[in-house]
């Protein structure tokens, strides 16, 4: 009896050290990640509370919330914030609409299905810089661009898309790149819809459009919300396309690019640039929190029939 009791008690302290023995190998990576992400973040917060210009070199001075105070009246910051909203909302909505359309077209059996799907996904696999360069030089270009070539063939006059409509050009590029991502999420949603429900609706007299509007759309809602959440969190910090296509040209400077401009991009005003980036982080956290709460509420309420 004593021995069994002894062995039963024994594993406890052993188990603790066992769990630590398992965690130990993960620790270096964890510490490394914390150092790499959180230390710069905390330092950014500190910088944002100082007045620190590198060119011309001036001593760093603590100014409290002075940088944030100036933000409110900063016309350029407000402009960049508005552009950020445009460059997030337009591509997210555009790509979710197009992605849903493509997903509906792909959600059936046809010859060459695998090939078509793979080809449709490729835009998402390209590097953002490459996407920007392709669209700038091969699609939108005033002289050699494919779009202008088509316009000329149709008898129109060429348009300098990037200098005339910089924000819309970037938004179009982002839609092109993000449509496959939305398509994949929506396609997964479509394929998780039970077949007998669709058959029941057919027998019940619903037209294909009626089935989509009354049943499929409701089923897709959580999937669309997931796509919008993920797309928003990523697109709010887009930098590459802006840098490559317009270099922040007329009205296309969004917040991430503005932060770059004001710091290492020539402004060398690290104090104020840090305050901009902190604002972006806070905005992202708010959006993500709100969106996640909406999403999880929906998942709890709607799914798992």
């Amino acid at each position: 009896m004593n021995t069994t009791l002894g062995t039963r008690i024994a594993p406890r302290p052993l188990g603790l050290s066992e769990s630590w023995r398992r965690r130990l190998p993960l620790l270096p990576a964890l510490v490394f990640t914390i150092l790499l992400t959180q230390v710069p973040f905390v330092m950014s917060i500190w910088y944002s509370l100082t007045d620190w210009k590198v060119v011309p070199p001036t001593p760093r001075q603590f100014v409290g919330l002075g940088n944030y105070g100036k933000l409110v009246s900063d016309h350029f910051f407000r402009q960049a914030a508005w552009t950020s909203i445009e460059l997030t909302v337009v591509p997210v909505l555009g790509s979710i609409l197009l992605g849903t359309a493509f997903a509906l077209l792909l959600d059936r059996k046809f010859f060459g299905q695998g090939l078509v799907r793979t080809l449709l996904i490729t835009p998402f696999l390209l590097m953002p810089v490459v996407v920007g360069l392709i669209w700038k030089n091969q699609m939108f270009h005033g002289l050699y661009g494919v779009i202008n070539w088509v316009i000329e063939k149709l008898g129109g006059t060429p348009v300098e898309f990037i200098s005339r409509y910089p924000t819309w050009a970037i938004a179009a590029t982002l839609i092109w790149q993000w449509t496959p991502f939305m398509m994949l999420i929506i396609l997964a949603g479509l394929q998780s819809q039970p077949g007998d429900v669709l058959e029941a609706a057919k027998v019940d007299g619903a037209t294909p459009f009626g089935i989509f509007r009354q049943l499929t759309l409701g089923h897709l809602r959580p999937y669309m919300e997931l796509g919008i959440l993920l797309g928003t969190v990523y697109l709010i910090q887009v930098y590459d396309q802006v840098a490559v296509m317009t270099g922040g040209g007329p009205g296309s400077t969004n917040l991430p690019y503005f932060v770059f401009e004001r710091s290492i991009g020539g402004g060398w005003d690290f104090g104020r640039a840090s305050s901009y980036s902190i604002v972006v982080v806070i905005a992202s956290i708010i959006i993500a929190t709100v969106a996640l709460r909406v999403l999880s509420g929906l998942l709890k309420g709607e799914e798992i029939a």
Binding site: P194, D196, V197, E199, A200, A201, K202, V203, D204, G205, A206, T207, Q214, L215, G218, H219, E302, A305
Partner: peptide, 21 residues
């Protein structure tokens, strides 16, 4: 003739109820 024009009603094995309704 399409299912919806046949004037039939069907009961499915897994009921196939519309989950959102």
């Amino acid at each position: 003739v399409r299912p919806r024009d046949r004037d039939i009603a069907m009961v499915f094995q897994n009921y196939a109820l519309y989950p959102q309704l």
